[in-house]
Design a protein around this nucleic acid. Sequence first.
DNA 1: TATTAGCACTCAACTCAAATGAGTGCTAAT
DNA 2: ATTAGCACTCATTTGAGTTGAGTGCTAATA
Lengths: 342, 342
Amino acid sequence: MQLDERKKKILQAIIRNYLETGEPVGSRTISRYTDLNLSSATIRNEMADLEELGYIVQPHTSAGRIPSDKGYRLYVDTMLEEKDKEIEEMKGLLLEREDKMGHLLKQVVKVLAQNTNYATMISAPQYHHSKLKFIQLSRVDENQILAVIVIEGNVIKNHILSVEQELDDETMLKLNILLNTHLNGLSVEEINLGMVAALKHQAGAHSDIVGEVLDAVAGAITEDEDLEIYTSGTNNIFKYPELADQQKASELITTFEEKQMLGALVQETLADENSNGIQVYIGDESPIQSMKDCSVVTATYELDEGMKGTIGIIGPKRMDYDKVIGTLKTIMHQLDEMYKKK
Amino acid sequence: MQLDERKKKILQAIIRNYLETGEPVGSRTISRYTDLNLSSATIRNEMADLEELGYIVQPHTSAGRIPSDKGYRLYVDTMLEEKDKEIEEMKGLLLEREDKMGHLLKQVVKVLAQNTNYATMISAPQYHHSKLKFIQLSRVDENQILAVIVIEGNVIKNHILSVEQELDDETMLKLNILLNTHLNGLSVEEINLGMVAALKHQAGAHSDIVGEVLDAVAGAITEDEDLEIYTSGTNNIFKYPELADQQKASELITTFEEKQMLGALVQETLADENSNGIQVYIGDESPIQSMKDCSVVTATYELDEGMKGTIGIIGPKRMDYDKVIGTLKTIMHQLDEMYKKK
DNA sequence: TATTAGCACTCAACTCAAATGAGTGCTAAT
DNA sequence: ATTAGCACTCATTTGAGTTGAGTGCTAATA
């Protein structure tokens, strides 16, 4: 059996209607709803076909039909085709990641949640293969030294180390020069054991300090373990009865609270190279188990220097895909603007 | 009417039982449950008295009794009296607040949630009247300067500023000396307009840089607007039917997500000076509206140098107060240990 | 051959009344 | 002062009956 034009139209009508109401939709409704001028009986026949083809299902005999995952998938795919796909690129910014980035992302994710009425998440951009840009040791007081480590992309890490006896200015200067001349521009892979040994040797009596600083550098560069993820609008799930029962709500909220769990989504999104920015996971397609009754729309944003992050919107399967994707694009555009301003 | 010893015992038995089951408790149950050897009829009489006194209420005729807020209050107060009140003091630590503190607090709040089965929160310690300890300007590349600002208590702030043309080493050194000699040890109140003008004047051509750095300093010191709060175990509320209905759950979860809302709790807790560490808010006593059906137990922890933060546990009124307070103390002790180790 | 009207059938959801049982208040006996 | 006993209350459970939206099938129609 083929999916002819009329079947497609009926399917679309079913999905549209279900998106609005959240209730199974019957043949009579569709008979009115569309401009096809067909009787409910005819619609019933077509619906039987659509069910056989797997695009819609009946929750129980004598109930209307609701879209299956396959049905949603078809709907989303055709919709995406119609839309223009270019996503505004986000570029160039100087930004102290640690401090301000966090605030900005929190704001973005909140606005997104308010606009869409779904739960939202955003991951801070991750830096890969970053190189050391600059190290600065300073004396904070008698027995504490502050090491400031700046990595490409202006990621800044601070590390305080304690020392036995006070170091004089000259020693500090020497250590600074030693570290910067040898290390600047190197990635963590390039800082090997031999180099560490050589540096320590040159540092003489202060090899322990050099050692500790190098550890901090390694930590700072490879530190993508703590993938920062911000969420908002978790409570929106209560707006959709099909997600609001205790079992599901509890699971979802746990997922949103244990933000690491969302990491899987970020990985999955970033991994999928050939999609141009926006991806849609319907039901079981989602990499996260607790979202098997949801739809998830993700977008990848990219800042300067290959820093990529992920935005995600999690809602019921009968999500307003159209609006969500539009909003995502707008948000990305605005993000871009905001950065440029700074 | 007086609250004699027997009435107290019966009240305590009612509360204990209700804490366990979450169901209204009847006279027959108490008649068995206690070692008073009284018939259910007698208990009924006593219960009638207790109700008149306002310690217990009946959800409806022909149901058992449940404790009123007043009843809980009595229970908690007497329990607190019995317990030893000293809280382990938490002291001395060197810690880069920004980086590691966050991780630690996240861990603490999580452990607490797992141990108690309630929702938990912790606020990062706030710094008041902090003084500037140290400023360091460094050149990151041609037209960017990194300002590192260290405040008492080793709070470190980074700020990147852009400059038109490159500054030579000598200028950098001069600026560093200028800033440090004039500003170190000052609190934000002491950095007044006259001083700013004088510094700018001395900086000559680079007054704009000095201006920006001073802004950053002011921002860093007074920055308690972004009171950091971490939460965990939100989903635990689903374990208590009396909190798990959609309306209440949604409100509570919103509160936990919009962490600023929890700020009221922190303020309230810190404000109450004369309680020695642990406070209990029952029902409407809570400063947060959405928690009117909950009990909230808070504790103040204090680190070196007057840095105070708040830990909070939010659960149903029939919270296991005993255990919660014990756990809170243990956690504080462990926090202490962890700091000492570093 | 495609569409439609009509009808019997299904089944979740609602309604309503009866049954259940945990719990109370009161009274009279101990 | 305590208790046994009993009538009474009322939330909750149960089950039968009703409703109504929706289906599948068949025969008539265009």
